Computed example of a mutant assay.
Amino acid sequence: MQTLITNISQRIRQVYQKAEGFIEDEREIPLSQVFLNATFQRFVTDNVKMLQDLHADLHDDWLRLYATLDYNGLNITLSVDLKLVLMELNKDTQLIVFEQISDTQVIEASYPSFLHKIAVKCALFYYQKIRNDDPLGMILEKLKVIKVKDDLLHLDLNRWLGQNRSIIDTLSKVHVNHAVLREAELVLTGNVNLTALFRKMSEEKLDNVEDSLADTQVTPLKQK
């Protein structure tokens, strides 16, 4: 029975090998804003000591990112508008790339002293007005949250997701090629990996067969 099921599974996989194991038609996978922010909390915020909060408000084709930092008595909440450039999620890569489309704004802040307040305002003015640059990328890079490459913000989730076997197992079945921002929603565009799905189905069937065989085994009667 096990050989039969294995052969059927292998035959099905061979049919789809010409398509490299992926359905040609891309599928949309919608994720809510709440789910995305919960993911940031679990895999980013909880792993960066000075980062108290990281969440986003999603809109059509752009998002507003909020970051709350706590450092040496300075507690400050910053916001910035970003455009989603790239999202790639598979078993090898978990990468999100953003383009900054606005200056960083100070939403709320508490300073340990008046001098710290002046220093922060002067630093923002210097970067944004004189250097024509923005400090947010530099700040998040120093906190090892992102990397700045070619003026784009690269958020590599592999540092945290790569250690989660359940997530990597899921990503072996779904290859996300891109994503689109909509109001309060992130819509992933990806392919379903049929090879991985059929392999999983085969394993589950084998487990069921083994359980069934175990349940139907009869202990031989002893001869008197």
Rank of each mutant, 00 (worst) to 15 (best):
I8G: 03
D151A: 02
L86R: 12
Q128I: 04
L152F: 08
T45P: 09
I167K: 00
F114C: 13
Q52S: 15
H154V: 05
S32K: 00
L84Q: 05
A109K: 03
F35C: 13
G137S: 01
E203C: 02
T77D: 11
N72E: 14
F125V: 12
S110Q: 12
T195N: 08
L95T: 12
R27A: 05
E88F: 01
D211K: 06
L143N: 09
W160C: 10
E28M: 03
T219K: 04
Q217N: 14
I146G: 07
T189I: 09
K142S: 13
N37C: 03
S113I: 05
Q14W: 06
A196W: 07
K91N: 15
L36N: 06
E88D: 05
E108I: 03
L74H: 05
E20Y: 11
L194E: 06
L157Y: 07
K224E: 10
L186C: 05
Y126G: 03
N177R: 04
T39Q: 08
I5K: 00
H154M: 02
L115I: 06
V48A: 01
T3C: 04
D103H: 11
T170G: 04
D215K: 08
M201K: 15
A19V: 08
D151E: 09
S212Q: 15
K18V: 09
V15R: 01
S166M: 09
A38E: 05
I167G: 03
I168L: 08
W160M: 12
I12F: 10
Q105T: 09
T39P: 12
T219F: 08
T195F: 03
V176W: 00
A196N: 14
R182T: 13
L84D: 14
V120C: 02
I118C: 04
S202N: 14
A67T: 11
Q2H: 10
T195P: 12
Q41W: 04
H175A: 04
H116A: 13
T6C: 08
H116D: 14
S110R: 05
V174N: 01
I167T: 07
K205L: 13
L152M: 10
R42T: 13
D25H: 15
P135V: 02
V180P: 12
D70R: 02
I168C: 02
D150S: 12
K91S: 12
V145G: 04
Q33F: 01
P112H: 00
D134N: 11
K121L: 10
S172L: 03
E88T: 10
D25Q: 11
K117N: 07
A119L: 14
K18A: 05
F40Q: 11
Y126D: 06
L58I: 06
D134A: 00
